[in-house]
Design a protein around this nucleic acid. Structure first.
Lengths: 193, 193
DNA sequence: ATTGCAGTAGACAGACCTGTCTGTTAACTT
DNA sequence: AAGTTAACAGACAGGTCTGTCTACTGCAAT
């Protein structure tokens, strides 16, 4: 058919569907059959692209990680030059996400389905470490007295907000988180302006 | 055998095992067969006590809710009479839990495995509401200017800490959370002493 | 034109899932 | 001692899971 050349490659379609279904319903709740049915791909194609379902899961998490890192960076860019404002910008973005009805953190969700020590846990831990390191760079740039602790506290607040958005429309919660973050940043960073 | 009379009733043994396995491995990852094998119960017994696996899951969550509420109350009792100290006591308890290697919040974990709108989500939302209401009573008693917002912020911090303890040994994180909570409480509650 | 490649469609195997059913054993009650 | 009840052991049904395999289709490049 004529749309064949314009259609996204099979691997991408699989991952598109995986992101949608795994994120909304959980990983174990979505079988390979449903995955291929909704992505319009033959089973053999899926197993050619990915040796097993676990590899689809890993690729799903890696893609989500990419999205997050990209999102964080563009959020910071949009928030201006002041690292303090960039940090608060992250929480503003969370507020928007909560208003749109996000379904929580894909990594926390994935870790919930697996025993500690599993690959999903490892990828989740790695993602959290990366985000925390990124936040830590900002808290350090903001001149925080103890950038590590402040970064830790802010990421805990982020994770709490994300967890809340999984179970309810948490725009109020996200607003409260933004406000708390602002206060924590203000009190931890001596302002030299 | 002679231990039969001292043995816990079948229903309790099923729930004991459910708490252990569902919490550690996730709900979908644990089948009924494994449940009965590890609790030493016949399949017919399980299906006599619970109409379906979903009912086991609901009972599991209800028991976890009980445990939490009980734990919160005894934590508050142990922390003294001052509501501010009781609030901080919750975070001290989280620190202990993180040190023992807790596996996160059973409700956040359960919600991650189901689509929004499911029973697991409803029970989770109800649990979170109850905890938040309990914390709100304390923030009000502590004389917070805006007890609702402070309660929201503290519960977000709690959830974030719990989410972190699922993916890593988060004793440092829990300590940072306690410190942040202390600061938030101090700045939000005018101290009349 | 033909060869190769990537994808589609779908049958199939074997394991595991939930849930039912039949029988047996052991304890408690009267 | 007899009867009742609860629990045990495990076969079984019907469905779904992951993963493999065969056969067909369309496109692209030589």
């Amino acid at each position: 058919m004529s749309t064949a050349s314009t259609r996204r490659p099979a691997r991408d379609r699989i991952l598109d569907t995986a992101c949608e279904l795994f994120y909304a319903h959980g990983i174990h709740a979505v079988g390979v059959d449903r995955l291929i049915a909704e992505s319009g791909v033959a089973k053999a194609t899926l197993y050619k692209q990915f040796p097993s379902k676990d590899d689809v899961v890993a690729a799903y998490l890696r893609r989500m990680d990419d999205r997050w890192q990209r999102g964080l960076r563009s959020t910071a860019l949009a928030a201006g030059d002041d690292p303090r404002e960039q940090l608060v910008g992250v929480f503003v973005a969370l507020e928007h996400a909560a208003r749109e009805g996000t379904l929580g953190c894909a990594f926390i969700n994935a870790a919930a389905e697996y025993h500690p020590g599993s690959t999903a846990h490892a990828i989740t831990a790695e993602h959290k470490r990366a985000v925390r390191a990124w936040v830590r760079d900002l808290t350090a740039a903001a001149g925080a007295a103890d950038p590590d602790t402040l970064a830790l506290q802010l990421t805990l607040l982020i994770d709490g907000t994300l967890a809340a958005t999984r179970v309810e429309h948490a725009d109020v919660a996200a607003g409260a988180a933004r406000q708390a973050a602002q206060a924590m940043i203000d009190s931890a960073c001596p302002q030299p302006d």
